[in-house]
Design a protein around this nucleic acid. Structure first.
Ligand SMILES: [Mn+2]
Ligand SMILES: [Mn+2]
Ligand SMILES: [Zn+2]
Ligand SMILES: [Zn+2]
Lengths: 126, 126
DNA sequence: AGCGATTTTGACAATCGTTCTCGATAAGCC
DNA sequence: GGCTTATCGAGAACGATTGTCAAAATCGCT
């Protein structure tokens, strides 16, 4: 049902070429600079699809922008993100998962979801 | 240096009258409905100030809106928020603080900040 | 390869939360 | 009361994102 277009491929590759989180606009600019005539709306759609399929992680920056990153590990995980360069480390922390579940249950809340991200400055940038 | 206006007082009180997170627009509408002629920009500014002074908590909804809540406990804490009605429980978890600091340090990252929120469905709403 | 049904694209407009502008207003202070 | 200056607020401006819709491209089928 989902068709293969060079646009989606281009977005996937451009995303993989980065090692941190990027916005749709940044990625669009990068693609255009590299000579691609891809449209902005298409980049937004492709990134949204990738995130929906689990091939990309997404998060909101402090400024409210949606940022994306090519997913390295397949399962659920969190991120340690450099505030300066965007470099990102994927983190698994079962302790956090348990804590979230326990905390919700302790207050009578059901079906907990959680947002856990750490923003700091990486060694290269400090 | 900072002046006391009835507008700031009105925002503070309107915020305290709620028990969940609200957006600036919602609060503005509520104030207007109650007869206040307060301006929208003023509500935005007041909420931003309150958050900056630590008298209000703020977070971003999944849709990217900035939400505010009158702060109950004074120190650093996190939230367990009902996805349906917005009811919120303030949570302190030293274990999380330590984990965040340890995780950042383990990867050579400095000056860590973290976003930790749990969204679930409260007992009244399930 | 050719055809046709259906998806996808992209330029542009529209949306929507938030911030900016700037003349008017009103705290705080003497 | 007056002065100084922070604050207000209506409306414009902004910026990220989404909607529109005609043109182009993909895929299944022959
Ligand atoms: Mn988790
Ligand atoms: Mn914390
Ligand atoms: Zn860095
Ligand atoms: Zn609830």
């Amino acid at each position: 049902m989902k068709r293969n277009t060079w646009q989606r491929t281009a977005v996937r590759e451009a995303l993989s070429a980065r090692d941190g989180f990027v916005s749709a606009q940044e990625l669009h600019t990068a693609l255009r600079s590299a000579g691609s005539p891809i449209g902005l709306a298409t980049v937004y759609r492709a990134l949204s699809d990738l995130a929906g399929e689990g091939d990309a992680d997404s998060l909101q920056s402090a400024e409210g922008e949606n940022l994306y990153r090519a997913c390295v590990s397949p399962g659920h995980h969190h991120h340690l993100i450099c505030r300066v360069c965007g470099r990102t480390v994927e983190i698994e922390a079962d302790a956090i998962e348990e804590w979230a579940a326990r905390t919700a249950a302790a207050h009578g809340f059901r079906d907990p979801q959680h947002v856990v991200d750490v923003f700091a400055v990486c060694d290269r940038c400090s």
